[in-house]
Amino acid sequence: MGVTINDVAKAAGVAPSTVSRVISDSSLISDRTKRKVKRIMEDLGYHPNINARNLANQTSQTLGIVMPSSASKSFQNPFFPEVIRGISSTAHMKDYSLLISTGETEEQILEAVEKMVMGKRVDGIILLYSRENDPIIQYLLKQEFPFVLVGKPYQHVERITYIDNDNYGAAREVTNTFIRKGHQKIAFVGGSRDFLVTQERLSGYCDAMKLSGLPLNEGYIFHDDFLLESGKASIDHLMRLEEPPTAIVAADDIIALGILSSLADLGKQVPEQVSVISFNNLVLAELATPRLSSVDVNIFQLGNEATKLVIDRIQSNDTHSKSVIVPYRIVERQSSLEEQAK
């Protein structure tokens, strides 16, 4: 016969109910007792029946992850595997499993979320994006279902718990970095305009240009998806202008890699002829040729903190919204070190 909860309780000198509370990570039990009981569980080889526990508690012990588009497309950008790595790290420590949404269209993704919620497949949801008029957010608010947003909400800020960076401040700072180096023809290449991260970074770029007395050239602003091909398309547009930019603020490292690739194909020297700074500071930024300057937004921490927030909402039933701003830092490498000739 296998080890039972009563065996653990006897060995630990506590009641079986205390062992149950340790298994469910109850705040009523001290950390000292939790460590003691968990050590004895390990020594005895006791493994709790998670399914039975979840059935009794009417929980799934699972978190849902919602991508901005189909997983096959989203995973082309290493931002998402990295933020999921941060989510997974905390979820594992808290004994939560993960369920990633699937679907090729917004309608299919919404349908997948509805199945998660109505089928009680997950206890809470983490949205890895923020966009205008998102029907998924509207649905989750209507259902009063626990969720956390990675990114600044477009609306209902007072009702939504979210985690983000100061994207406006970061974009303004990197644009000013170029301006201090003597650049005046500075372009901005962003992702889709309906994403709040694009809007915030574009606003920071625009305000830096205006406050420095530099003209805003609409031809220098280019938007597409957060993909390699978007960076290549932006160069095809920007380098055809009568006065091409001498510096580019890219809203994402993958976009920037496309930019570097196309500039190399055209024989443009980086940073001597065109300087580039982007966002996310992926491992690929260090491996790029030349090495890519980038804003480190602490992607892993975004996922880690988002998971803590959603689990806190689940376990405390606290409906008050919270916001966490994760700090960023600019990592300058070869792609932006050159100063523009006056």
Rank of each mutant, 00 (worst) to 15 (best):
G2M: 12
V3E: 02
N6D: 11
R21T: 13
S24Y: 04
D25P: 11
D25R: 14
L28R: 15
L28N: 14
S30V: 10
S30H: 00
D31L: 12
R35N: 15
K38M: 15
E42D: 15
D43Y: 07
N49H: 09
I50N: 10
Q58N: 14
Q61M: 15
Q61H: 15
L63C: 10
V66Q: 04
A71L: 07
S72N: 12
S72W: 01
K73P: 03
F75C: 05
P78Q: 04
F79C: 01
F80G: 07
V83R: 00
I84W: 03
I84L: 05
G86M: 05
S88Y: 09
T90Q: 14
D95M: 12
I100C: 08
T102V: 14
G103K: 01
G103H: 04
E104A: 15
T105C: 03
E106F: 05
Q108F: 09
I109F: 05
L110D: 13
A112T: 15
V113S: 11
M116S: 08
G119L: 10
D123G: 13
I125W: 08
L127N: 12
L127M: 15
L127D: 07
L128E: 07
E132A: 12
E132W: 06
N133M: 07
P135D: 08
Y139R: 00
V148Y: 11
L149F: 08
G151H: 05
Y154F: 15
H156E: 14
E158T: 06
E158V: 11
I160L: 03
D164T: 15
G169F: 01
R172C: 11
E173Y: 04
T177G: 02
K181H: 09
Q184R: 14
A187W: 05
F188V: 09
F188C: 03
F188R: 03
V189F: 01
G191A: 02
G191Q: 01
R193V: 14
L202I: 09
L202A: 09
L202G: 04
M209I: 14
L211M: 12
S212P: 05
G213Q: 07
P215L: 03
Y220I: 06
Y220A: 04
I221G: 07
I221L: 08
L227C: 08
L227V: 11
E229C: 00
S230W: 02
E243M: 06
P244H: 05
P245N: 04
T246K: 02
A247M: 03
A250P: 12
A251M: 06
D252P: 06
I255D: 02
I255P: 06
G258K: 02
S261L: 00
L263F: 00
L263H: 00
A264S: 11
A264V: 03
D265I: 08
L266R: 13
G267R: 00
V270I: 10
E272L: 00
Q273A: 03
V274R: 00
I277F: 02
F279T: 10
A285Y: 02
A288D: 05
T289H: 05
F300S: 10
G303L: 04
N304T: 14
D312K: 04
D312W: 08
I314R: 02
Q315F: 08
N317W: 06
N317R: 10
H320M: 12
S321L: 04
V324H: 11
V324K: 12
P327T: 11
I330H: 08
E332A: 01
E332L: 09
L337K: 11
L337F: 00
E339I: 04
